[in-house]
């Protein structure tokens, strides 16, 4: 009985010391993590590369395929939701990995928020949108910096003047906010209307552009 008790205590101690070796320091893990991203990308195993980027709106997630920028995720959307959407709709091989296209987009975002850039010059991958929605976003991309348009105007521009509601849906699902400036589309009365990143973010972008004029 006593011997058994001792044995149990010893087993407990052994189990504890086996579990105790679980610490892994953050810096060496980050290095291993970084090497993995490099090797995976070099082997062509990354279908969507993404990075986080700090902006005045908060941390934005930007994702790119080999074809170009595919997604800009605003802080209000939640990173998990954005990554899960990419996994489902593009490929589950989504990895945080540096890419020239992402570095480029990050620079341009910085310049935009510094009011040193009015147009984005990045390759876009439009695969997350199609049909009429795509046409609405293409029309939206033509609205100049600092200007605004109404939902009806972009619907008309996209070829269906009466599809105002559908145009609203297209804009609410814009996979590339900021870069494709859906914040420049307002209700006909001049009200803000909704925004994927929340109404305050929309107001903030419009103010930024108004101040630069």
């Amino acid at each position: 009985m006593n011997a058994n008790g001792n044995q149990d205590a010893e087993l407990d101690r052994l189990e504890r010391s086996l579990r105790a070796s679980e610490e892994l320091d953050a810096a060496s893990w980050e290095l291993v993590r970084h090497n993995l991203a490099d090797r995976a990308d070099a082997a062509g195993l990354v279908d969507v590369a993404f990075e986080r980027h700090d902006t005045p709106l908060g941390t934005v997630l930007i994702g790119a395929t080999n074809e170009g920028l595919v997604r800009v995720g605003l802080p209000a959307e939640g990173e998990d939701a954005v990554l899960t959407e990419l996994a489902k709709r593009v490929s589950a091989r989504v990895l945080r990995a540096p890419r020239p296209a992402l570095t480029d987009a990050r620079h341009q975002l910085d310049e935009y928020f510094d009011r040193r850039r009015r147009e984005f010059e990045v390759e876009l991958d439009w695969r997350l949108t199609r049909g009429f929605r795509h046409a609405v976003l293409v029309a939206t991309a033509r609205i100049p910096y600092g200007a605004t348009a109404s939902y009806r105007e972009v619907a008309t521009e996209a070829g269906s003047p009466n599809a105002v509601r559908a145009a609203g849906t297209a804009l609410a699902n814009n996979p590339l906010p900021i870069v494709v400036p859906c914040h420049r589309v307002l209700r006909s009365g001049g009200e803000l209307g909704s925004y994927r990143g929340g109404a305050p973010a929309k107001a903030q972008l419009l103010e930024l552009e108004a101040a630069a004029r």
């Binding site: 993404f50 990554l83 899960t84 990419l86 996994a87 589950a92 091989r93 989504v94 990895l95 945080r96």
Partner: peptide
């Protein structure tokens, strides 16, 4: 029931 993003 696609697998989660590999990042996760």
């Amino acid at each position: 029931d696609a697998p989660p993003p590999f990042e996760r």
